[in-house]
């Protein structure tokens, strides 16, 4: 394990030990703050209950990522190819992030229903922005000397895009995707809080109402694990695709 990994592990162990000790020393009721050991036990023992909900939330997130990819990539390319489009659309992109997703969630449930669609849409809103912005910036960061070379070679925009701009922008695209997938859970869970019949957000709301706080924490733990797995998967994909050192 690397030095930074050891430091992170040490910090986590210290935090959990302090938490566990504080709960036991001050005899804090479990429904207010359960100790980490109980949360971990609940997360494992209650897995048969949690997993179907986690699968629903996971599907919402993955669909949201897919939707974000198939919309953000063409839009970013169009904005790069036509700067006038970038100028026209930038205020809308910023506005989409300025409006809190909490404010949109009830409306989306009304418009798209209690099913998966409203949650996928919520996840899409959150992921779409970092991917689009990062990709546009990545495409624009291409060295002008390379652009000149391609222009002198007589390359069409499509050839230049596939052979130069796209590979050039990939590191920034992946940086945006990493940010997107790590916050994607927020959109899906908020959507489930507002109105759902399944999902980890739904489970959290139900457990909270029954003061089953360990189950709430266990759901959060599963949610965090899903976010980290997605983040790691993007990292693995990035390493597989970007094999060169600039």
């Amino acid at each position: 394990m690397t030095r930074s990994g050891l430091i992170a592990l040490g910090l986590i162990i210290c935090l959990l030990a302090g938490w566990e000790g504080a709960v036991r020393i001050w005899a804090i009721p479990v429904f207010i703050l359960p100790p980490p050991s109980l949360i971990l036990t609940t997360a494992v023992v209650q897995a048969p209950l949690i997993l179907p909900h986690a699968a629903v939330t996971g599907a919402e997130i993955v669909l949201g990522i897919f939707l974000a990819l198939i919309t953000a990539i063409p839009l970013a390319i169009a904005m790069f190819a036509r700067p006038v489009l970038e100028k026209a659309l930038s205020p809308f992109l910023v506005a989409s992030q300025a409006i809190p997703v909490f404010a949109l969630a009830p409306l989306l449930v009304i418009w798209l229903g209690y099913g998966m669609a409203s949650k996928v849409f919520m996840a899409w809103i959150i992921i779409f922005f970092p991917i689009t912005v990062s990709l546009v910036q990545g495409l624009k960061s291409c060295d002008p000397e390379y652009r000149t070379l391609f222009s002198l070679m007589g390359a069409s925009f499509l050839k230049t895009l596939t052979l130069l701009y796209w590979p050039w922008a990939l590191p920034r695209f992946f940086a945006g995707l990493r940010v997107g997938v790590s916050v994607a859970t927020i959109g899906a869970v908020i959507g489930e809080w507002v109105g759902a019949q399944q999902g980890l957000g739904f489970l959290m709301i139900q457990s909270n109402a029954r003061l089953q706080t360990p189950l709430v924490f266990a759901a959060i733990l599963w949610l965090a694990a899903m976010g980290m797995i997605l983040w790691s998967l993007v990292g693995i994909l990035e390493k597989k695709i970007i094999t060169w050192n600039t």
């Binding site: 007589g154 052979l163 590979p167 060169w244």
Partner: peptide, 25 residues
């Protein structure tokens, strides 16, 4: 045109870089 920088694309092999003018046209 040949620049003072080699302007080779790091994601392509040397042969693929050399073939770029043919590929783009």
């Amino acid at each position: 045109y040949m620049h003072q920088k080699d302007l080779l694309l790091p994601w392509f092999s040397l042969m693929d870089n050399a073939l770029l003018p043919a590929r783009t046209r």
